[in-house]
Design a protein around this nucleic acid. Structure first.
Lengths: 245, 245
DNA sequence: CGCGTCTTTGAAGAGAATCAAGTAACGTGG
DNA sequence: CCACGTTACTTGATTCTCTTCAAAGACGCG
């Protein structure tokens, strides 16, 4: 359907916003030319910094988080392959939160100059970047609804559905997702890790998820989507988000 | 300090992103030339629509909301004078939520064509619009933290502090804010209206807020900010957000 | 093996939802 | 002018979800 153009995850992600020209694709290939590796649980940027680079995820999982005065951590976004972590810094300046890896990652640094070039001289890419920012916002809105209005079990199921759909949009994946500890899961959902454990084992008992070495899989997408009241439209991925897998 | 350029609330808002040229200001004056009025509790756009216009708030208060299968409403954003309600539609297409007024409002419709013109041909305005989108995102992140991690009384106090700071950034206001019913307040905070009442009267008892005909005022900004653990940096307003009033 | 990290389970208690009544303020029509 | 309906606010009692504290089991690793 929306047949992605190449092996460049950034291009694949932005392709969801609409077709790009071969010239755009070449530019995007340059952008991801020089990746580097990072272990799990390392910070990319910390609150208050004013970094000169923007980061793109090629593989692995990265999160935005804030630490509260009482020491608790709130994870406010999950970045998957193809996601740009912090377009902010190119425009907003000082970081109002931190960014760190959850798993081992392959990443690319993009300079502010490159971002400015993409925004100023490549209208289709600019539009696509704007699109991805707006989608990020839509995801935040859904997380807000999720947190405020749903019980923890539905909320957790909803998160799984979302990650599943987002991974599908950049890379048809086969099998497992979410290499998260229960504490990280709790920090995303805004619940205690003890409760996260109980909720997760509840979902397992309902056979909505299976877990193998702290990796979650969804054996029956349709059923868990129904349970979570998951409506993928907010991801703005076209049919990709709606298809079972 | 950041002395706003004129009586145009859109220009004032965007001025927070950085200075604009006289030419930009003239263009923005054209944009808001033809306002219209709307009563409280009217929908501007509903979930699923694909509208041809974007809306700007000149006065009053507008909200984004989603309605859940169980009939409950979740308010996921508050738009104040100077805020553009739905840049989304110009880029994302189908609405994934609804937008409605909370109070009587003065608004402006902006056509998609105008938005495209601003984005394509006015680099400083484009940058400012991008800035405002990223600030909206930052606000959502803070709401998410607020909802997930703070007790309802701190959460409510935090909301009051935010609205106070945002109103100050476009228009030094004198006195009252938030003409909200307790049910609307509850729909923002993700709590029941009964609990909202108890929490509000708790804040009143602590003399952190005063209420007159369902309008909240903050008699001692410094004290309520401390209570709410409010740090205004996420609003990216420079000193405007930090000053008491 | 021992150590740390993560997971699992139990019991007690706080915060918020829900259900239920009752009060206050306001506009409307008789 | 008052009875009435409507809407918002207030209060109490009960129930539910989740937290906190505590401890024990599982797993991987030097």
């Amino acid at each position: 359907m929306t047949h992605t153009p190449n092996e460049n995850v950034l291009a694949r992600k932005l392709w969801n916003a609409g077709p790009l020209d071969p010239e755009d694709l070449r530019r995007l290939d340059q952008v991801i030319a020089d990746p580097f590796e990072l272990d799990a649980r390392e910070d990319l940027i910390q609150h208050g910094e004013d970094p000169q680079n923007v980061h793109l995820v090629l593989s692995g999982m990265v999160c935005r988080y804030k630490v509260l005065p009482n020491g608790k951590r709130a994870i406010v976004a999950l970045m998957l392959p193809g996601d740009i972590c912090d377009l902010h810094v190119a425009i907003l300046g000082r970081m109002d939160h931190s960014i760190g890896t959850l798993t081992d990652c392959r990443l690319v640094k993009i300079s502010r100059r490159t971002i400015d070039d993409l925004l100023d001289n490549h209208p289709r890419i600019r539009r696509a970047l704007f699109w991805s920012t707006l989608v990020d916002e839509a995801i935040l809105r859904e997380w807000l609804v999720n947190m405020g209005r749903r019980r923890a079990d539905q909320q957790m199921a909803h998160l799984f559905c979302e990650v599943h759909a987002r991974l599908n949009a950049v890379d048809r994946m086969h099998g497992a997702l979410l290499p998260l500890t229960q504490e990280e899961l709790a920090d995303i959902l805004g619940i205690s890790s003890v409760h996260a454990q109980r909720v997760l084992s509840g979902l397992r008992k309902k056979e909505l998820v299976t877990v193998q070495d702290s990796r979650v899989a969804l054996p029956d997408i349709r059923r868990i989507r129904e349970f979570a009241q998951f409506e993928g439209d907010y991801l703005h991925l076209g049919e990709a988000a709606d298809s079972g897998d």
